[in-house]
């Protein structure tokens, strides 16, 4: 259907109603005081953990955790410049081999663009990610979050989200309750979603 005809049909139909002015609202109208309590970083850690995400503040504890999960191999996103010594403990590829080895990585590690306290979300923008598969295909995924990049509220987060071709909020392991309401983690994406705060 022609674009103009389509839009005109909508306009005509909408004209049958009295116009309602866009409501004005303050950003704080939407912000949850309980979810943002304690400042950006504390809120992020609390809310991310509540969604069964794992938080690490030191590389040693992360290495230990990955070893305890039986990790041997990993894939690190090409845009992540520092591997924090992980390469000493694990065999790490710098490129996701989609053709030959899509299930061959015990964990993936990528750089988060930033994080949000209020909803406990890590944000991956295409502009900071070389390959989307690193974050979604391995069973364990680690996001490296710069503690200075954590914002407190969702409106603050939204204001810096939609400037890349693609961005995604991730608040924990991939999950479903589609079979009789039973919670199962690790559907398509990571069953373990961790962050390393640096």
């Amino acid at each position: 259907m022609d674009k103009q005809i389509f839009i005109d049909k909508v306009r005509q139909a909408q004209g049958k109603h009295n116009p309602v002015p866009m409501p004005t609202f303050d950003e704080n109208d939407t912000v949850s005081t309980t979810a943002t309590r304690g400042g950006a970083k504390a809120a992020f850690m609390r809310n991310f953990t509540a969604n069964h995400g794992d938080v690490f503040e030191s590389c040693d504890s992360l290495v230990e955790f990955l070893k305890s999960k039986g990790c041997k191999t990993g894939v690190a996103d090409a845009k992540l410049s520092d591997l924090f010594g992980l390469e000493k403990h694990f065999e790490i590829s710098r490129e996701f081999d989609r053709q030959n080895n899509p299930d061959g990585y015990d964990f993936g590690i990528s750089k988060a663009s930033f994080a949000i306290g209020e909803n406990g979300a890590i944000v991956f923008k295409d502009s900071d990610t070389a390959d989307r598969l690193n974050t979604i295909a391995p069973w364990i995924h680690v996001a490296v979050v710069d503690s200075k990049s954590i914002v407190s509220t969702l409106p603050e987060g939204l204001a810096q989200t939609v400037d890349s071709p693609y961005a995604v909020y991730v608040t924990g392991p991939s999950k479903t309750t589609d079979v009789e309401g039973v919670l199962v983690e690790g559907v398509h994406g990571p069953g373990v979603q961790a962050v390393l705060i640096v």
């Binding site: 996701f96 989307r132 890349s164 071709p165 693609y166 991730v170 608040t171 392991p173």
Partner: peptide, 14 residues
């Protein structure tokens, strides 16, 4: 858990 914002063709490799 996931909220995707898609603005057009991607710029990442896959």
């Amino acid at each position: 858990v996931y909220t995707d914002f898609v603005r057009g063709p991607g710029s990442a490799k896959n």
